[in-house]
Amino acid sequence: MNRLDQLFSQKKDHILNIYFTAGYPKLEDTGKIILALEKAGVDLVEIGMPYSDPLADGPTIQESGQQALANGMTLPQLFDQIEAVRAHSNIPLIMMGYFNQVMQYGEEAFVKKCVEAQVDGVILPDLPLYEYEQYYRELFENAGLHISFLITPQTSEERIKKVDALTRGFIYMVSNSSITGAKSDISEHQLSYFNRINSLQLKNPRLIGFGISSNQTFETACQYANGAIIGSAYIRMLAKAEDIEKDTLAFVHKIKGQIPTGHTSSLV
């Protein structure tokens, strides 16, 4: 059973999905970060495939990607790292990147390799629904590799239904129409969008991403969806991290609003 299906059948709310850029801060940090996130109680992990021209991402993720590429990260290396960490980890893993990367690896080879590396799903924000349905849906579904599509406040109801029909795993709800990491609050306007989507009774669970960076924004997102996705805020933390495992634990506890064990201070 796909780990994403397992997760969503067992947990319906407060699902925490954290994104990081593979190969950042250091080339060999991928496994360490995945294990640290799993240990800290994160529900699923999104592994960013660093890309030279990440159109849908903001400066934080772009800069981390440029650093990762400068560190020498490539897709074949990333798959090796994921395969290695899978021996010690059972957390649902998603790969997020741009369609050109998959095209150059070879679409069929990419899907096959994801299955071998026990990757559970992918997000390719610039792969259009039409092209997916025409050319790749069968490939993904036969392999049992899930795929998430995005919706935004501007997405029409008709299109949301199409997204729901093609998505396997979860729907990625962009909290506002903006690039990642751009806004830090959740507005009334966004709340009405969350409510509208809630009322559509979609079959897939929904995770809210873009602009989630604190316990407060995480909690708000969780009131309106099954959980939330954090990217830029975690990468900013990693940029300063001295001890990835310890600092990841503190970060996740802070997002979840928990007092970490072993700490007496409430100033975390």
Partner: peptide
Amino acid sequence: YIPEMLHP
């Protein structure tokens, strides 16, 4: 080949 944010 555009992100959903550009679709509308």
